[in-house]
Computed example of a mutant assay.
Amino acid sequence: MGRGVCRGVVLKIQEIHVREDFLLLELVSLDVILGMKWLQTLGETKINWRTLMMELVMGGRRRTIQGDAGLTKAGVSLKSMIRSIQEVGGGYLVELHYLERVSVRDEGDIPLVVQQLIQQFREVFQPPQGLPPPREQEHAILLKDVVSPISVRPYHYPRFKKMKSRS
């Protein structure tokens, strides 16, 4: 577990006052974690992860908490996570990332080695134009007249059954 409990701590988040018991944990670059225990007390909330905004109802009033984008890059060291899991016996780690499509506007953004490969194999990186050209050997499946399709199990079975199906 942690190194103790601080009971009845009042934490002010913007204009919201939270009174909770906090476990003392050694975490790198984090001051407080308000976890599932606190989130469950809120009931229904609305969260916009892109704008880091959380809407909730406390004391019958709709409140909004605005997150600080500068704090979203805070990391937890692997060593402190392992230590916490060993002491507590388990836990959850949730990491959310926002991905956006990036287009390369300038060839200067592409490393020189990659640019050389792209130039050397330019035709490979072009979008396909129609069907592939005719080949020297075209693929074909020759069908025999009056022969029914072979019905064979798609997985291995004993040898004696294979011999039976040939006769």
Rank of each mutant, 00 (worst) to 15 (best):
S80I: 00
R101H: 08
E100Q: 14
S151Y: 10
R135F: 07
R122K: 08
Q129W: 01
G43F: 00
I118K: 07
G67I: 01
S151C: 10
V28E: 13
I85S: 07
P134L: 05
L39I: 14
Y92A: 12
Q115S: 01
M58E: 11
E26W: 07
I65S: 01
I85K: 06
V146K: 12
V32K: 08
F121M: 06
V147H: 12
V32E: 07
K144T: 04
M58Q: 09
M81R: 02
L71T: 15
L71C: 13
G90L: 02
R62M: 11
V57E: 14
L117I: 04
Q120G: 03
K46E: 13
D21F: 09
E107M: 11
T51Y: 03
K46T: 13
T72S: 06
Q86T: 04
M53C: 11
R105H: 15
L117P: 00
I150P: 00
E87V: 03
P154Q: 00
E100Y: 08
P132A: 03
M53T: 15
V32Y: 13
F125K: 01
Q115M: 00
N48G: 04
G108P: 03
L117V: 05
V114Q: 02
S77I: 05
Q129P: 00
G70S: 14
A74D: 11
V113I: 02
L30R: 10
V152K: 03
V94D: 04
L143A: 07
E107W: 10
I47F: 15
E136K: 10
E136T: 11
L143C: 08
V113D: 04
T64N: 01
S80T: 09
V152T: 06
R63Q: 08
R105Y: 14
L39N: 09
G59I: 01
Q129A: 05
L96T: 10
I141D: 10
Q116R: 05
L42H: 03
E100V: 04
L131F: 09
I47Y: 12
L34F: 06
S84C: 13
Q137M: 12
E95D: 09
S151R: 13
L93C: 10
L25C: 06
G70N: 15
Q129C: 05
P127R: 15
I110G: 09
L131G: 02
S77N: 11
S77K: 09
G43N: 01
K79G: 06
L39F: 15
M36I: 10
V88R: 09
M81K: 01
M54T: 05
V104D: 09
V102T: 15
S151D: 12
I82E: 13
L142S: 06
L24G: 08
E138S: 12
G108S: 14
Y92V: 15
M53G: 05
I118A: 02
M53Q: 15
E55F: 00
